[in-house]
């Protein structure tokens, strides 16, 4: 995506990426079966490109992203379901690779706090309304 200083230093010793910002999926990767390809794209959008910043492998030009896209497609072809593919990727690369964090102990707050914020908000609105009714 964007070549900041950091990324340049970083990529220096990582896979020597050809730094361009062109979209990623190449025609030769695409699966013949449309439904399978769609699944592959959806998974790819949730998988982080490890050597990029905030970019999914679906959008990334990095060779590793390409390898992972092909790996995902191969696994889909061999009949693995989405969950097995996600499990494989997290077992190798950790939770860091998921752009949509899984719901587990350490992301408990991440997923529940927005709901909690909303509940506080709803409470404030109703309290205000109650006070109004009491006044009038």
């Amino acid at each position: 995506m964007i070549k900041n200083k950091f990324f340049i230093i970083f990529s220096f010793f990582l896979f020597q990426t050809f730094l361009t910002n062109i979209g990623a999926v190449e025609p030769d990767e695409v699966l013949k079966n449309n439904a399978q390809e769609l699944r592959a794209r959806n998974i790819s959008k949730n998988i982080r490109c490890m050597v990029c910043q905030n970019q999914s492998i679906d959008e990334s030009e990095a060779p590793l992203a390409k390898d992972l896209r092909i790996l995902i497609r191969n696994k889909i072809k061999s009949g693995k379901d989405d969950k097995e593919i996600y499990n494989f990727l997290t077992s190798r690369y950790g939770d860091f690779i998921l752009l949509q964090p899984a719901f587990k102990l350490n992301t408990f707050a991440l997923w529940l706090l927005p709901v909690f914020f909303l509940l506080i908000g709803v409470y404030v609105i109703f309290r205000q309304n109650k006070l109004f009714k009491r006044k009038s």
């Binding site: 939770d95 860091f96 998921l98 752009l99 964090p101």
Partner: peptide, 10 residues
């Protein structure tokens, strides 16, 4: 000591 990502899907 873990690291996670929070991205667009979240």
């Amino acid at each position: 000591d873990n690291k996670i990502s929070v991205g667009e899907p979240y």
